[in-house]
Design a binder for these strands. Sequence first.
DNA 1: CCTTGTCAAGAGCGCTGCTCTCGTCTCTTG
DNA 2: CAAGAGACGAGAGCAGCGCTCTTGACAAGG
Lengths: 245, 245
Amino acid sequence: MPTPSDAVRDAALSVPRTARQRARTEITREIIETARRHLAESGAAGLSLRAVARDLGMVSSAVYRYVPSRDDLLTALIIESYEHLGDAVARSEAQLRRGDLVGRWLAVCHAVRDWALANPHEYALLYGSPVPGYAAPQDTVPAGTRVPMLLMQLSADIIDAGMSPEPQRVPRAVHGSLVPLREGSGLPGSVPDDSIVRGIMAWTTLFGAVSLELFGQYGDGIADPRALFDHEMHRIAALLVAPDQ
Amino acid sequence: MPTPSDAVRDAALSVPRTARQRARTEITREIIETARRHLAESGAAGLSLRAVARDLGMVSSAVYRYVPSRDDLLTALIIESYEHLGDAVARSEAQLRRGDLVGRWLAVCHAVRDWALANPHEYALLYGSPVPGYAAPQDTVPAGTRVPMLLMQLSADIIDAGMSPEPQRVPRAVHGSLVPLREGSGLPGSVPDDSIVRGIMAWTTLFGAVSLELFGQYGDGIADPRALFDHEMHRIAALLVAPDQ
DNA sequence: CCTTGTCAAGAGCGCTGCTCTCGTCTCTTG
DNA sequence: CAAGAGACGAGAGCAGCGCTCTTGACAAGG
């Protein structure tokens, strides 16, 4: 008695057994794929289970054999999109010399921005207002932390290279605030609070800049958003690694 | 022959003449008010013209005499929300001594965050993913730039007080990128590019921090978001005004 | 072979945004 | 003051949505 939730999971793992099960995971994958195409074209708000079914030549009720609900389909798309973004960023960042810390930071920045510009609806789904009530369940967390994790690794590398800026004192309350993050991320205890704060602020500014641009907050006030973005991220770089090179 | 768009505008201006017109602006205002209540409770996605009509004891088609479409209603709510946020921020910032530049910056930060926490759905409507296709027309621009304008004024005051940090060199492309913003904001030409960039980055980090927290990107990694936010904004303060006090 | 379980299809419920018509009421003009 | 022009509320209706339930056909396993 396979439930639709199982189908979504199996489609990701893709470990079929009988012909029935193979067909099942196959169709589930097709549904998610078609939904991803619709998402890219019309955005999350315009994603319709019925339209997806129509595209696949099946009737809407049949889709519910494979997907429990529209929200679950969106959740699957969220996870998939996080992975796509994570892949794009990791791929871009991996091309640089490990010792080129500033270069790696800038690579992450532009990879995020480029991906967001290429996939605006997906980015909006990930980082915009949470659409379906407050859907985002625990399933999306591991995928969603990939980019922040990558930045944490970069922070650790900066420390190892002895390129950290003069550590700044961090208030007691902030130290306590970071405890669950330390535990959840497996960050070595030797990383000082100051570095974590710097990492968070860098990620915050990166996210903020991309979102402001993509969500139209600049209006037509900024002629060349890429130039501004690049400059901003260069300035943040000075926050992350000491300028003495 | 009053069009529904006129009704929405008149409700804001409220200059009635005949009894008919007074009733018209009155009802239009009630519609927007009820819609704002629904927005606060269920979010933009859950806002239904029919539900608003039901709440007002009228039939759905009657609402269309006053509001051209759901998107226009949302646009009206966007403008109203921008004004509310702008009021809250301006009120909070005005309470501080003009010379207390860091204090004014922090007041703006906490006013934005407090308002966002108190009105999450409104904040999501303003700064989250643009819901209705790409609605946000020109009407929302003046209201939407209130907070950034306030920060621009703060930047100008910092310069006037001679408290600006050592100006940093700004690339040619970035200078050009800022031209339309200079023209649109009536900023005095004496304000250097560097100050504008600092202002944009401050606004970017403020916006990013509030959005990351409100949209659930911190997960449960941050125990005391307010403490972290306050600390981050203090650090940004050092970017805006020279630490020599 | 035959039972069990999976499947696609269709009908249907309640909701949505939006349009059109119709009878009524009000304001304005002759 | 009366008559025509215009604004209005109510209702029916269309197409779409998410989702549920029933029905009949098919395949898998005992």
